[in-house]
Nucleic acid binder design. Structure first.
Lengths: 192, 192
DNA sequence: TATTTACACTAGCGCTTGCTTGGTTACTCT
DNA sequence: AGAGTAACCAAGCAAGCGCTAGTGTAAATA
């Protein structure tokens, strides 16, 4: 029973759990289903995770850490112009959303199943990620690229982006980058 | 056991069920919790609904029918200018979303718990509602008010609007109508 | 060689789940 | 008065739930 273990075995189990949580939802996924998917018996599962809750927390933490890393890297590597940074951030968001889709769908739609302790811990991670967004939006507003309330704009943009997991098929003709660019174009009057 | 009953009692039970489904999620809401909230015993519940699934379907159907009615009425009563119709549709969307909040949150986040039969039936309702949106968006595009792909624009706008249930507090200083107007302004370069 | 560690197993406990059954009450209609 | 019906209740069943206890075994460590 490893409290904060990052063994490769545990990582793989977390990945499988994410898939099942998306397919069935957290509540309908039983420890027996998880175990079977992992090729072990249900009892053995509790050697890797203290309880079912911890599996959920592991899935969400993994996904959010990843999103944070990718976004920071992308922002570090791109130019300083507000327009470029806005586009970069939107692209990074969709990139993580669809390369790590299962984990993010779980994070978006099963967050409330977290117990208060895990939720508090993971909220910090999510807040750090959203702070990146707000900074980029602020720059774009200051540069006159977009208009409106900083708070509203970021919520609307994040909502539009997050909702894509409900309808967008990344294996179709349109790439995630196209999608991100179209959204940015939609809210940027200067780019018409 | 009424298959397609619209008795006032059943309507009230449906409303209470929606509230619990939002609070706890469909899977974690037990028939005993539902019964207690309704002031009856769990067995009596099955006099009104054939099974738990049917309660979920009733909640979602109620909400969607309502949204459709409100949107149609609002569009019928408003002016013919594409800009007005776009704003009207966004306002109507947020109006239903927050007057009938519980039912809509359930429809948005518990849809997948529907069995295939109920899902197929309700999909038609939802499609009829989305068709209203696409028509309004098409007019706005044709009038040059907004730009982009009709499909993408409607998805982005609906995503941004639906996501508001996650963060917006209608009892705050900003009214739902303000919210709708700000979103429309955000995507309409001409209104700067 | 002796000991620990990591990982898996079997078996099942205690509890909750959705739902059924068989019967009762209260009200309406003829 | 009698029949019909909608609404309810007490009791409980079969299945499934998360999780625990105790054991076996192979590899790593001392």
């Amino acid at each position: 029973m490893n409290v904060m273990n990052a063994s490769p075995r545990r990582k793989e189990l977390t990945r499988l759990a994410a898939q099942l949580f998306v397919q069935e939802g957290f509540d309908r996924t039983t420890v027996r289903m998880l175990a079977q998917e992992m090729g072990i018996k249900s009892g053995s599962l509790f050697h890797h995770f203290k309880d079912k809750q911890e599996i959920l927390a592991a899935v969400i933490e993994e996904g959010t850490q990843n999103a944070l890393m990718i976004a920071r890297k992308a922002l570090n590597e791109c130019a300083a112009e507000p327009e470029v940074r806005l586009r970069t951030m939107a692209r990074a968001h969709l990139e993580t959303l669809f390369t790590d889709r299962n984990a993010h769908v779980v994070a978006l739609f099963e967050w409330r199943r977290l117990d208060p302790v895990a939720s508090a811990h993971l909220s910090h991670l999510r807040d750090a990620y959203e702070a990146l967004w707000v900074a980029v939006i602020d720059d774009a507003l200051a540069a006159g690229l977009i208009h409106g309330d900083r708070f509203l704009v970021s919520r609307f943009v994040l909502g539009a982006l997050n909702w894509t997991v409900r309808w967008y098929d990344p294996s179709g003709p349109r790439s995630p980058d196209d999608l991100a660019d179209e959204l940015v174009a939609m809210i940027m009057p200067t780019s018409v």
